[in-house]
Amino acid sequence: MRAEAVRAGPAAAIERRPASRTSTLYLFALPATLLFVVFIAYPILWVAGQSFYVRSGSGTSSFAGLANYVTVLGDPTFWIVVRNMLLWGVITIPVQMLIGGVLAYFIERHTHALRGFFRTMFFLPVVTSVSVISLVWVQIYAPYYGIAQEYLKHVGFVMMTSPIGDPKMAIYALVIVNIWQWTGFSMLMYIAGIANLPSEVLDAARVDGARGWRLAMHVIVPMLAPATKSLLLLGVIGTLQTFPIVHLMTGGGPNRASEVFGTFIFKQSFVLGDTGSGAALSVIVLVVALVLSLLQIVTLGARLTPAGKERA
C-alpha cells in the first residue's frame, strides 16, 4: 500500500483528498485570488479595454479598434522612448550588477568591524526619496554654480552646460543617477548570495589552490548565478517602470530626448488627456515586460533563489 502511494506520487494523493479538505484549500487561496483579481487583473483588463477607445473633443468615447496602437507606433517619440529604454537597460543592469557584485565581494570578504557601516552606506541611496535624489543631482550637474563644478574648478575644469540640458547627453546623465541609486540593491542581493554560499565548497576550492581572482571568477561568480538572474529580471522590469527620476529631473526633455515609457504614458494620459493612447502604451509595455520575463525564464531558467537555500 505504501509502495503504491509512493509510485502514484503527489497527484494521486491529491485525488484521494476528501472534497471538504479540497474546498478548505481553495478557501485559503481565496483572499490572494481576490486581491489579485481586484487590484491587478481588473485594472489590467480595464486599461486594455480603454486602449480600444478614443475620446472626442466633446468628451464622448467611441470604439476605435487598433487606432490608438497605430497612432502610438507611428509617433516618432515612441521610437525615441524605445531607444532610451534599450540604452537604459543595456547600461544600467550590467553596470549595477558589476559594481554591486564587486562591492559585495569586498565588503563580505575584506571588511570585518566596518561591514555593517559599509553595507548601510552603500544601501542608503536605495531608501532615499527620489525627490531628494533628483534635487541633489540637478544641483550636482548644474554648470558654474553646481556641486560638481565646485570640485572640478580645482582641476581647472569648467562645466559649460548641464548634461541634463543637452539632448545628446540627457539620457546618459539620468542613467548615471539611476546606477548611483540602485547599485546598493544589487550589492545587497549579492551579499545575500555570498552569505549563503556553502562553506565546504569554498574550503574545497581553497584546498585545490583557488585564491583571489580565480576563486572569485571560477567559484563564487558561478555560484551566485541565481542572484544574477534575479537582478537581471528585476532590472528589466525596473527599466520599463522608470518614471520618477526622469519626471523630476528632465520631464522627458529637452525636446523629448530623455523620454521613457513612464513619462510618455504619464504625458499622454494625464497631461494631454489622451487616455486611449496612454492605455495602448501601457499595454505595449506590459506585453514587452511579459515577453522579456518569459524569455529570461526560458533561456536562463527559473532558479532564482540563492544556491545554498534552494529546496530539493
Binding site: 558654474y144 543637452d166 540627457a170
Partner: peptide
C-alpha cells in the same frame, strides 16, 4: 545662464 536647459525655476532658481 549657461546650462539653462537643465535647470528648474523652482526650487533651484527661486532659491538662488
Amino acid at each position: 545662464q549657461q546650462g539653462a536647459l537643465g535647470a528648474h525655476a523652482y526650487p533651484t532658481g527661486a532659491q538662488l
